[in-house]
Protein backbone atom coordinates (compact mmCIF):
# COMPACT_ATOMS: atom_id res chain seq x y z
CA UNK A 1 0.00 0.00 0.00
CA UNK A 2 1.34 3.39 -0.90
CA UNK A 3 1.90 6.20 1.55
CA UNK A 4 -0.91 8.28 0.08
CA UNK A 5 -3.34 5.50 0.84
CA UNK A 6 -1.92 4.85 4.30
CA UNK A 7 -2.44 8.33 5.73
CA UNK A 8 -6.20 8.42 5.07
CA UNK A 9 -6.45 4.92 6.45
CA UNK A 10 -4.73 5.94 9.67
CA UNK A 11 -6.89 9.04 9.94
CA UNK A 12 -9.92 6.83 9.51
CA UNK A 13 -8.52 4.52 12.19
CA UNK A 14 -8.49 7.40 14.68
CA UNK A 15 -12.01 8.32 13.69
CA UNK A 16 -13.53 4.87 13.99
CA UNK A 17 -11.45 4.17 17.10
CA UNK A 18 -12.84 7.19 18.95
CA UNK A 19 -16.25 5.76 19.99
CA UNK A 20 -14.48 2.62 21.18
CA UNK A 21 -12.03 4.78 23.10
CA UNK A 22 -14.82 6.61 24.92
CA UNK A 23 -16.54 3.36 25.80
CA UNK A 24 -13.30 1.69 26.92
CA UNK A 25 -12.41 4.61 29.16
CA UNK A 26 -15.89 4.47 30.64
CA UNK A 27 -15.56 0.77 31.39
CA UNK A 28 -12.09 1.26 32.88
CA UNK A 29 -13.51 3.92 35.17
CA UNK A 30 -16.33 1.61 36.27
CA UNK A 31 -14.14 -1.45 36.70
CA UNK A 32 -11.56 0.47 38.74
CA UNK A 33 -14.27 0.81 41.37
CA UNK A 34 -14.71 -2.96 41.36
CA UNK A 35 -17.91 -3.13 39.33
CA UNK A 36 -18.03 -5.23 36.18
CA UNK A 37 -20.48 -3.64 33.77
CA UNK A 38 -21.13 -5.74 30.68
CA UNK A 39 -23.87 -3.32 29.66
CA UNK A 40 -21.50 -1.00 27.75
CA UNK A 41 -23.27 -1.74 24.48
CA UNK A 42 -26.63 -0.85 26.03
CA UNK A 43 -25.40 2.37 27.61
CA UNK A 44 -23.75 3.41 24.31
CA UNK A 45 -26.82 2.94 22.17
CA UNK A 46 -29.09 4.70 24.64
CA UNK A 47 -26.59 7.56 24.66
CA UNK A 48 -26.49 7.57 20.87
CA UNK A 49 -30.28 7.92 20.60
CA UNK A 50 -30.54 10.54 23.35
CA UNK A 51 -27.80 12.59 21.72
CA UNK A 52 -29.43 12.31 18.31
CA UNK A 53 -32.92 13.28 19.53
CA UNK A 54 -31.81 16.22 21.66
CA UNK A 55 -29.61 17.53 18.91
CA UNK A 56 -32.41 17.12 16.37
CA UNK A 57 -35.02 18.94 18.45
CA UNK A 58 -32.86 21.67 19.96
CA UNK A 59 -30.54 22.06 17.02
CA UNK A 60 -27.56 22.05 19.36
CA UNK A 61 -25.10 19.16 19.07
CA UNK A 62 -23.44 20.29 22.32
CA UNK A 63 -26.68 19.85 24.23
CA UNK A 64 -27.09 16.53 22.46
CA UNK A 65 -23.66 15.44 23.63
CA UNK A 66 -24.49 16.37 27.20
CA UNK A 67 -27.81 14.53 26.97
CA UNK A 68 -26.02 11.46 25.62
CA UNK A 69 -23.65 11.39 28.60
CA UNK A 70 -26.50 11.77 31.07
CA UNK A 71 -28.54 9.10 29.28
CA UNK A 72 -25.53 6.77 29.54
CA UNK A 73 -25.36 7.42 33.28
CA UNK A 74 -29.10 6.90 33.58
CA UNK A 75 -28.86 3.57 31.77
CA UNK A 76 -26.00 2.32 33.94
CA UNK A 77 -27.82 3.49 37.06
CA UNK A 78 -30.05 0.43 36.52
CA UNK A 79 -26.90 -1.65 36.91
CA UNK A 80 -26.11 0.31 40.07
CA UNK A 81 -29.52 -0.35 41.59
CA UNK A 82 -29.29 -4.06 40.85
CA UNK A 83 -25.71 -4.53 42.05
CA UNK A 84 -25.33 -1.95 44.82
CA UNK A 85 -28.79 -1.95 46.36
CA UNK A 86 -29.82 -5.54 45.83
CA UNK A 87 -26.42 -7.28 45.50
CA UNK A 88 -27.54 -8.81 42.22
CA UNK A 89 -25.21 -10.74 39.95
CA UNK A 90 -23.10 -8.23 38.03
CA UNK A 91 -22.72 -10.38 34.92
CA UNK A 92 -26.44 -11.02 34.55
CA UNK A 93 -27.34 -7.42 35.26
CA UNK A 94 -24.84 -6.15 32.69
CA UNK A 95 -26.11 -8.53 30.01
CA UNK A 96 -29.68 -7.46 30.77
CA UNK A 97 -28.65 -3.83 30.38
CA UNK A 98 -27.21 -4.56 26.94
CA UNK A 99 -30.39 -6.26 25.77
CA UNK A 100 -32.65 -3.65 27.35
CA UNK A 101 -30.65 -0.72 25.97
CA UNK A 102 -30.56 -2.07 22.44
CA UNK A 103 -34.26 -2.95 22.44
CA UNK A 104 -35.30 0.36 23.93
CA UNK A 105 -33.19 2.50 21.62
CA UNK A 106 -34.20 0.62 18.49
CA UNK A 107 -37.88 0.79 19.44
CA UNK A 108 -37.90 4.48 20.38
CA UNK A 109 -35.71 5.31 17.41
CA UNK A 110 -37.87 3.57 14.79
CA UNK A 111 -39.62 6.78 13.58
CA UNK A 112 -36.26 8.45 13.04
CA UNK A 113 -34.43 5.78 11.08
CA UNK A 114 -32.65 7.41 8.17
CA UNK A 115 -33.28 10.95 9.41
CA UNK A 116 -30.40 13.25 10.16
CA UNK A 117 -29.62 15.68 12.95
CA UNK A 118 -27.16 18.53 13.32
CA UNK A 119 -23.81 17.13 14.49
CA UNK A 120 -20.12 17.88 14.75
CA UNK A 121 -18.12 18.47 11.59
CA UNK A 122 -14.40 18.17 10.99
CA UNK A 123 -12.47 21.17 12.16
CA UNK A 124 -8.79 21.29 11.22
CA UNK A 125 -6.83 22.62 14.18
CA UNK A 126 -4.72 25.63 13.16
CA UNK A 127 -0.95 25.02 13.13
CA UNK A 128 -1.23 21.43 14.46
CA UNK A 129 -3.01 20.17 11.35
CA UNK A 130 -0.17 21.53 9.23
CA UNK A 131 2.37 19.16 10.77
CA UNK A 132 3.26 16.73 7.98
CA UNK A 133 1.70 13.26 8.27
CA UNK A 134 0.75 13.57 11.97
CA UNK A 135 -1.37 16.64 11.32
CA UNK A 136 -3.33 14.74 8.70
CA UNK A 137 -3.78 11.72 10.91
CA UNK A 138 -4.58 13.31 14.27
CA UNK A 139 -5.58 16.97 13.89
CA UNK A 140 -8.01 17.03 11.01
CA UNK A 141 -11.08 15.68 12.80
CA UNK A 142 -14.20 16.83 14.56
CA UNK A 143 -14.11 18.34 18.10
CA UNK A 144 -15.21 15.07 19.75
CA UNK A 145 -11.97 13.41 18.61
CA UNK A 146 -9.96 16.23 20.18
CA UNK A 147 -11.98 15.88 23.38
CA UNK A 148 -11.15 12.19 23.46
CA UNK A 149 -7.42 13.05 23.35
CA UNK A 150 -7.77 14.91 26.66
CA UNK A 151 -9.61 12.27 28.65
CA UNK A 152 -6.95 9.52 29.06
CA UNK A 153 -4.30 11.76 30.66
CA UNK A 154 -6.92 13.43 32.84
CA UNK A 155 -8.23 10.07 33.96
CA UNK A 156 -4.70 8.89 34.68
CA UNK A 157 -4.10 12.00 36.79
CA UNK A 158 -7.36 11.37 38.63
CA UNK A 159 -6.38 7.80 39.50
CA UNK A 160 -2.77 8.52 40.41
CA UNK A 161 -2.74 11.93 41.98
CA UNK A 162 -6.06 12.68 43.60
CA UNK A 163 -7.63 11.60 46.84
CA UNK A 164 -10.84 10.52 45.12
CA UNK A 165 -8.92 8.45 42.60
CA UNK A 166 -6.99 6.73 45.37
CA UNK A 167 -10.20 5.95 47.22
CA UNK A 168 -11.87 4.67 44.05
CA UNK A 169 -8.96 2.32 43.33
CA UNK A 170 -8.94 1.05 46.92
CA UNK A 171 -12.66 0.28 46.70
CA UNK A 172 -12.03 -1.78 43.58
CA UNK A 173 -9.08 -3.61 45.09
CA UNK A 174 -10.19 -4.38 48.63
CA UNK A 175 -13.55 -3.00 49.75
CA UNK A 176 -13.14 -4.35 53.29
CA UNK A 177 -9.86 -2.48 53.73
CA UNK A 178 -11.43 0.66 52.29
CA UNK A 179 -14.33 0.34 54.72
CA UNK A 180 -11.92 -0.13 57.60
CA UNK A 181 -10.21 3.09 56.48
CA UNK A 182 -13.52 4.91 56.78
CA UNK A 183 -14.39 5.15 53.07
CA UNK A 184 -18.02 4.89 52.00
CA UNK A 185 -17.49 2.12 49.47
CA UNK A 186 -21.01 2.17 48.05
CA UNK A 187 -20.83 5.84 47.07
CA UNK A 188 -17.53 5.25 45.31
CA UNK A 189 -19.03 2.37 43.36
CA UNK A 190 -21.89 4.66 42.37
CA UNK A 191 -19.29 7.15 41.19
CA UNK A 192 -17.63 4.41 39.15
CA UNK A 193 -20.89 3.25 37.58
CA UNK A 194 -22.38 6.65 36.79
CA UNK A 195 -19.08 8.23 35.71
CA UNK A 196 -18.33 5.27 33.47
CA UNK A 197 -21.86 5.41 32.04
CA UNK A 198 -21.34 9.05 31.12
CA UNK A 199 -18.31 8.20 28.96
CA UNK A 200 -20.16 5.27 27.38
CA UNK A 201 -22.97 7.65 26.48
CA UNK A 202 -20.44 10.01 24.87
CA UNK A 203 -19.13 7.08 22.85
CA UNK A 204 -22.63 6.46 21.57
CA UNK A 205 -23.11 10.12 20.76
CA UNK A 206 -19.95 10.08 18.67
CA UNK A 207 -21.63 7.55 16.40
CA UNK A 208 -24.87 9.50 15.93
CA UNK A 209 -23.50 13.04 15.99
CA UNK A 210 -20.03 12.89 14.45
CA UNK A 211 -19.22 9.60 12.73
CA UNK A 212 -22.59 9.78 10.98
CA UNK A 213 -25.23 12.42 11.50
CA UNK A 214 -27.93 9.79 11.10
CA UNK A 215 -29.96 7.44 13.19
CA UNK A 216 -30.11 3.79 12.11
CA UNK A 217 -30.99 0.65 14.02
CA UNK A 218 -28.14 -1.17 15.76
CA UNK A 219 -25.96 1.87 15.36
CA UNK A 220 -23.36 0.68 17.88
CA UNK A 221 -22.88 -2.66 16.12
CA UNK A 222 -21.04 -4.49 18.91
CA UNK A 223 -18.53 -1.71 19.66
CA UNK A 224 -19.48 -1.92 23.33
CA UNK A 225 -18.34 -5.53 23.47
CA UNK A 226 -15.04 -4.64 21.86
CA UNK A 227 -14.64 -2.02 24.58
CA UNK A 228 -15.14 -4.66 27.28
CA UNK A 229 -12.37 -6.72 25.75
CA UNK A 230 -10.13 -3.68 25.28
CA UNK A 231 -10.24 -2.94 29.00
CA UNK A 232 -8.38 -6.21 29.51
CA UNK A 233 -6.01 -5.42 26.63
CA UNK A 234 -5.33 -2.03 28.21
CA UNK A 235 -4.51 -3.64 31.57
CA UNK A 236 -7.03 -1.17 33.08
CA UNK A 237 -4.73 1.76 32.21
CA UNK A 238 -6.35 4.76 30.49
CA UNK A 239 -3.31 5.57 28.32
CA UNK A 240 -3.00 2.03 26.97
CA UNK A 241 -6.68 2.15 26.02
CA UNK A 242 -5.73 4.65 23.30
CA UNK A 243 -3.51 2.16 21.46
CA UNK A 244 -6.11 -0.55 21.68
CA UNK A 245 -8.93 1.65 20.45
CA UNK A 246 -6.96 2.88 17.43
CA UNK A 247 -5.81 -0.64 16.61
CA UNK A 248 -9.41 -1.75 16.44
CA UNK A 249 -10.42 1.42 14.65
CA UNK A 250 -7.72 0.63 12.11
CA UNK A 251 -9.01 -2.88 11.50
CA UNK A 252 -12.55 -1.59 11.11
CA UNK A 253 -11.45 1.10 8.66
CA UNK A 254 -9.32 -1.38 6.73
CA UNK A 255 -12.19 -3.80 6.49
CA UNK A 256 -14.44 -1.08 5.03
CA UNK A 257 -11.79 -0.09 2.51
CA UNK A 258 -11.20 -3.66 1.42
CA UNK A 259 -14.92 -4.11 0.84
CA UNK A 260 -15.04 -0.90 -1.17
CA UNK A 261 -12.05 -1.95 -3.26
CA UNK A 262 -14.06 -4.91 -4.51
CA UNK A 263 -11.87 -7.70 -3.22
CA UNK A 264 -12.69 -11.34 -3.85
CA UNK A 265 -13.02 -12.05 -0.12
CA UNK A 266 -16.61 -12.45 1.08
CA UNK A 267 -17.75 -9.37 2.97
CA UNK A 268 -18.96 -11.40 5.94
CA UNK A 269 -15.42 -12.63 6.48
CA UNK A 270 -14.15 -9.07 6.42
CA UNK A 271 -16.82 -8.01 8.89
CA UNK A 272 -15.51 -10.67 11.24
CA UNK A 273 -12.04 -9.13 11.34
CA UNK A 274 -12.44 -6.85 14.38
CA UNK A 275 -13.99 -9.65 16.40
CA UNK A 276 -11.32 -12.17 15.44
CA UNK A 277 -8.83 -9.56 16.58
CA UNK A 278 -10.76 -9.25 19.87
CA UNK A 279 -10.37 -12.95 20.58
CA UNK A 280 -6.72 -12.82 19.57
CA UNK A 281 -6.02 -9.83 21.80
CA UNK A 282 -7.72 -11.46 24.78
CA UNK A 283 -5.63 -14.59 24.39
CA UNK A 284 -2.45 -12.53 24.09
CA UNK A 285 -3.12 -10.30 27.07
CA UNK A 286 -4.03 -13.21 29.31
CA UNK A 287 -0.47 -14.38 28.76
CA UNK A 288 0.99 -11.29 30.31
CA UNK A 289 -0.85 -11.45 33.61
CA UNK A 290 1.98 -9.92 35.60
CA UNK A 291 1.72 -6.31 34.50
CA UNK A 292 -2.07 -6.29 34.56
CA UNK A 293 -3.77 -3.95 36.98
CA UNK A 294 -7.02 -5.84 37.24
CA UNK A 295 -8.86 -4.65 40.33
CA UNK A 296 -8.80 -7.55 42.79
CA UNK A 297 -12.42 -7.13 43.83
CA UNK A 298 -13.76 -6.78 40.27
CA UNK A 299 -17.24 -8.26 40.01
CA UNK A 300 -17.50 -8.97 43.73
CA UNK A 301 -20.48 -7.36 45.42
CA UNK A 302 -20.21 -5.58 48.73
CA UNK A 303 -22.29 -7.41 51.29
CA UNK A 304 -24.13 -5.03 53.57
CA UNK A 305 -22.92 -5.12 57.17
CA UNK A 306 -25.42 -5.07 59.96
Amino acid sequence: MTFELLIPLLAAAVQSGTPILYATLGEIFTEKSGVLNLGVEGAMIVGALAGFLVSKFTGSPVLGLLAAGLAGSLATSIHGVVCLWFQGNQVVSGLALTILGAGLANYLGTPYVGLSAPGFSPLALPLLSEIPVLGQIFFNHDPLVYLSYCIPPVMWLFFAKTRFGLNLRAVGEHPAAATAAGINVVSYRWLGILGGGFFMGLGGAYLSLAYTHLWTTNLTGGRGWIAVALVIFAFWRPIRAVYGAYLFGGVMALQLRLQASGTQLPSSLLLMLPYILTVFVLVLSSWKKGSSEEPAALGVNIEPVD
Binding site: K161, T162, R163, L166, A181, I183
Partner: peptide, 11 residues
Protein backbone atom coordinates in the same frame (compact mmCIF):
# COMPACT_ATOMS: atom_id res chain seq x y z
CA UNK B 1 -1.75 4.96 55.12
CA UNK B 2 -3.47 7.96 53.57
CA UNK B 3 -6.44 5.97 52.34
CA UNK B 4 -9.65 7.47 53.59
CA UNK B 5 -8.03 10.48 55.24
CA UNK B 6 -9.48 13.94 54.77
CA UNK B 7 -7.69 16.69 52.89
CA UNK B 8 -7.40 18.48 49.57
CA UNK B 9 -8.25 17.18 46.12
CA UNK B 10 -4.68 16.68 44.92
CA UNK B 11 -2.26 14.38 46.65
Amino acid sequence: IFLGTKGGFWL
